[in-house]
């Protein structure tokens, strides 16, 4: 079942990528990429390696961290509920089957697409700085997010008020998706919403690169907003998690901008071994 789902996600996202590369990136950028890809890979490699390591660590930590959190973390589900009450139920009022389907697909497919496409799009630029900053921002999102997950144990609305969110709860409508998300995350990890923070990161980058990819800005913004709303509509996150996700996204973007270039490994590489740079 899981393999089938993964194949489905890969197929859908693959089609979306193909279309959007055609629409947003264009033929001429692809041509230059074919020529310059080696140097771009070399520029981005250090941070890409760091990101991959963080992701791998995330994956192994998924099994061990929950027990660490239980011993040192704060259990905040009912605190969240006390603070924000039934805010997430606001979305229930506008629930329709079509909207539920839309947000479910956005949550699963849209999210994966919105994370992968900018990597491709920025790789297609001769200036690798946006790409390096983006990968740095992703790394920061995952690292800071993981830290919060260890410190805060909280269950999302679906785990707390299942009766009130019955009609839109993602896993009621599409129980198979729970297998998929269960592979990626643990149910006590809701603060902050990484779905929100990463999508917001992408939207902020889209705005900053609006001169090169003007058409991507509205699409990224719409998708990021939809992902953020979907997490509440589908009763996966509290409004607090989403707010924290937005903050985390903003922090990551600001930090990545400052960090990239400051301790640039590849540039130091260049200074010491300029010969490597030559093709």
């Amino acid at each position: 079942m899981l393999a089938q789902l993964l194949a489905q996600v890969a197929a859908v996202v693959g089609v979306l990528l193909a279309i959007s590369i055609g629409v947003f990136v264009g033929q001429s950028r692809l041509s230059t990429t074919r020529v310059e890809w080696r140097s771009r890979v070399r520029d981005a490699a250090p941070i890409a390696v760091v990101l991959v390591l963080v992701l791998l660590f995330n994956r192994t930590a998924r099994e061990t961290l929950p027990s660490l959190s239980w011993s040192i973390g704060w259990n905040l589900t009912s605190t969240f509920y006390e603070i924000e009450g039934q805010t997430v139920l606001l979305f229930q009022e506008y629930a329709t089957p079509e909207l539920t389907a839309y947000f479910s697909y956005v949550y699963v497919y849209g999210y994966v697409f919105v994370l992968i496409f900018p990597v491709v799009a920025y790789f297609a630029l001769s200036d690798t700085r946006p790409l390096r900053e983006l990968l740095t921002a992703y790394t920061l999102n995952y690292t800071l997010g993981l830290l919060c997950y260890v410190l805060v144990i909280a269950y999302g609305p679906r785990n707390w008020i299942p009766d009130l969110v019955e009609t839109t709860m993602l896993y009621n409508q599409y129980p198979q998706y729970q297998e998929l998300t269960g592979e990626v995350n643990h149910n006590t990890n809701v603060f902050p919403s990484l779905h929100t923070s990463l999508s917001a990161t992408v939207a902020m980058f889209a705005y900053r690169t609006r001169d090169v990819y003007p058409k991507w800005v509205p699409v990224a913004t719409l998708l990021a907003a939809s992902v953020a709303v979907s997490t509440m509509y589908l009763a996966i996150h509290w409004a607090i998690d989403v707010t924290a996700g937005l903050c985390l996204g903003a922090i990551s973007v600001v930090l990545s901008r400052r960090l990239v270039g400051r301790w640039s490994l590849s540039e130091e590489f260049d200074d010491w071994w300029p010969s490597l740079r030559r093709e």
Partner: peptide, 26 residues
């Protein structure tokens, strides 16, 4: 499986023959 609904899916799709846990009411 992560919940009763998913467990029922698993049985319904033929990937399992029965649910071992008793089903939640919903």
């Amino acid at each position: 499986d992560p919940g009763s609904l998913a467990a029922i899916e698993t049985v319904q799709s033929g990937s399992a023959d029965a649910t071992m846990s008793s089903l939640e009411t919903h």
